[in-house]
Amino acid sequence: MNLLEIQDITESYQAENGEIAALDHISFTMERGEFLSIVGPSGCGKSTLLSIIAGLLPPSSGRILLDGREVTGVDPRIGYMLQKDNLLEWRTIWKNVLLGLELRRRLDEESLDRARVLLRSYGLWEFREKYPSQLSGGMRQRAALIRTLATSPEVLLLDEAFSALDYQTRLEVTDDVYRILRREEITTLMVTHDIPESISMGDRVLILTGRPAGVRELLPIDLGPGRTPLSCRDDPRFSRYFNHIWKELKPNGTQ
């Protein structure tokens, strides 16, 4: 059964000089545990789509169903990670990791235990009393991920979550996050402008058209079992996918 259903989402918003159409009848579904990458020409409305699924922005029309129930507003079953880690500098890593639970008023023994387990499993336990400025970019991103995972979301949205990192750290963090998400069996929807990243992590890649964004293609990625985002970059199929998406993203890219 499908975990997440995006049904015919349209979004347009009002600006001083008229109405701007951002999303044009977008529909797709996701299975439990699946990793879906979304790519599209820059400024096409990828992030708008994610904001709608996160419940931060109401769609002009269309519905989002999670486990058969409609999502209205910010939903505790959906976690959202932004481009920057947004760790609060005045809180220790431990207090930062608890922020999501605190805001959702769910600071009970069970979730505290879960936060402890996550910190231990992902190598941040020794750093729990440190402040964000004392951590490397990769560790900060991991702490931000744990902050979201501590709230036990069923679906995770990643909004260009690695683009603020330098290239070296980025490859490292991508591998890291991919491993964590697979292990925690989190259904993930990732928006990126980085084509290799979309292929290396995704089970499928959703290619959007230019603004107003519509679905151009849903491309299944088959790079064999047991792959990691780093190892699969050497697969000969990788560059074929890359060229395909690259062509699709160009204006009138079907020719």
Partner: peptide
Amino acid sequence: DAIRMARTFG
């Protein structure tokens, strides 16, 4: 962005 992050947690 920090405010947006907090909003994602409702």
